[in-house]
């Protein structure tokens, strides 16, 4: 089956990004497809490359980046939610006249249409949030 996963809370404050990660891994292990994960609300903060957790804690952003590169998952960060919260890729940073970009590897900034597409095309949608 094709699973669409939505993460709508930020990392560390809330468990949602962790639960979604374990769920995605379990789905892949069982031979299902996870073509895309969509990050919305504070969930966009998972994609910040400026995250520096202590060494004895999990690195949520890196975990997602690694999982995505190993399984060709499209990690989509909502542009509207990201701009509110200061998550920018190189292009957006340039376009908005900002001097830094912080979108981590494996993540892609795009529109809410990507979320609706998942609902239309995939077999199941599972939301993780608060």
């Amino acid at each position: 089956m094709k699973f669409g996963i939505v993460v709508s809370e930020g990392p560390y404050t809330h468990q949602a990004a962790d639960t979604a990660y374990h769920f995605a891994k379990a789905a892949l292990d069982k031979g299902h497809e996870v073509p895309r994960v969509f990050f919305y609300h504070d969930g966009v903060n998972v994609s910040s490359s400026l995250t520096v957790p202590p060494q004895d804690e999990r690195h949520i952003q890196k975990n997602w980046s690694t999982l995505a590169s190993e399984n060709e998952i499209d990690l989509v960060v909502c542009i509207a939610a990201a701009q509110r919260r200061g998550i920018l890729d190189e292009n957006e940073a340039k376009r908005q006249g900002k001097d830094a970009a912080n979108l981590a590897e494996g993540f892609r900034i795009s529109g809410l249409g990507q979320l609706i597409e998942m609902g239309i095309e995939y077999d199941r949608m599972v939301m993780f949030g608060d």
Partner: peptide, 16 residues
Amino acid sequence: YDGFVDLVTEHDRSQS
């Protein structure tokens, strides 16, 4: 978590 995945497939939709 694997049981969670099965539950999602066994039901027609999921609602959080």
